[in-house]
Amino acid sequence: SPVALPPFFMRGSIIQLADGELKRVEDLKTEDFIQSAEISSELKIDSSTVERIDCGQSPNAVLIQFSVGELKAQVCVEVLVEYPFFVFGQGWSSCCPDRTTQLFELSCAKLCVGDVCVSLTLRSLR
């Protein structure tokens, strides 16, 4: 089933960066993710390129296939069309930006095949 939209995507939500700084979700920049991952002991930032966007099994859901990192690991996630992803150098983007803006007041660009999203991996194998 698609991942529901969590409350922290609502405009005005307070996000704590890894260095303790607080920012509103709509003010986050690519550098905030990069710098937070740099000082994280557990998480490493990686790039995930959107390879396909298909209709999901539920209404208002989409299946997004990503190619992750240098090894191009394939990851498929089913989310609601309004679910925002953070695109490097661009910011929040969703498959249906109008709906994201309507529901969460978060301005979004349209997520497209070829967009490179922020993703995370664990720093080391356990």
Binding site: P6, F8, Q16, V118, L120, L125
Partner: peptide, 19 residues
């Protein structure tokens, strides 16, 4: 006011890649 950690904004944890 709730405060959310930055990493909660990233929707999935990609598979760990071995070196």
């Amino acid at each position: 006011v709730p405060v959310f950690p930055w990493h909660s904004l990233v929707p999935f944890l990609a598979p760990t890649q071995s070196d």
